[in-house]
Design a protein around this nucleic acid. Structure first.
Length: 212
DNA sequence: TGGGCGATTGGCT
DNA sequence: GCCAATCGCCCAC
């Protein structure tokens, strides 16, 4: 299986994003291994993209986006959720791809345990469907056990606690559509997913907040 | 230095 | 479909 080349991640973000579909994110902890096959991503193009965290320049939070490609950019949002991106494009250009959803292909029991632990107070007696374990950017982070501590990890380095692996080389059809949840530039068709895959997150168009 | 709001989710109506 | 939860970031004051 060929390695994921750092050089290929330095390509323009709109080329890299769809190429990540079908690849594997593999997370190793003392608890065990969870691996996810990526089925949905979103592209963010730094200074040219009003929807990107790096649109207004570098800050301590988004610093990883400005670094070399292949590193993990993790951010905290809505006071309770983490989301994970991979920095892409040349060193110094702050493009990134958000991992939005995937299919758990290894360590499904550990993934389910993590998703259950993090759930709200009412510990549901219902078993989470497999396809919901990593369906959505914050759920994906929970399933993989990703938090602030993983910000900056090199996904291509051997021995990293989170690794990006080539997978089986998906080369099928790729669907595109508007990005999810953004206020600015949400209509840019920069979301990419594997059509028909049941682990792709349900699309919710942005609803402007009611004015006071 | 304070306040608005977010690359979301799950539970309830 | 609606809405609360929850807190760090960032910009305006």
């Amino acid at each position: 299986m060929p390695p994921v080349l750092r050089k290929s991640l330095a390509a323009p973000v709109l080329e890299v994003a769809p190429a990540l579909l079908g690849m594997i994110l593999r997370r190793t902890t003392p608890e065990g291994v969870v691996a996810v096959r990526i089925t949905e991503v979103e592209a963010y193009d730094g200074p040219n993209d009003p929807g990107s965290h790096s649109y207004r320049g570098q800050t301590p939070r988004n610093a990883v986006m400005f670094g070399p490609p292949g590193h993990l950019y993790v951010y905290f949002t809505y006071g309770m959720h983490y989301c994970m991106n991979i920095a892409v494009g040349p060193d110094g250009q702050p493009s990134a791809v958000l991992f939005r959803a995937g299919e758990v292909i290894e360590g499904i029991d550990l993934a389910r345990k993590r998703r259950g632990e993090t759930g709200r107070a009412t510990a549901s007696t219902k078993v989470l469907p497999d396809r919901d374990l990593a369906r959505g950017p914050a759920r994906l982070c929970v399933a993989l056990g990703i938090g602030r501590a993983e910000n900056g990890v090199d996904l291509l380095a051997r021995g990293s606690a989170v690794q990006l692996l080539p997978g089986d080389g998906y080369d099928g059809e790729v669907a595109t559509g508007p990005r999810v949840g953004l206020r600015e530039a949400a209509d840019w068709p920069w979301r990419f997913w594997i059509p028909g895959d049941r682990t792709v997150s349900p699309y919710k168009p942005h609803v402007p907040k009611k004015r006071s």
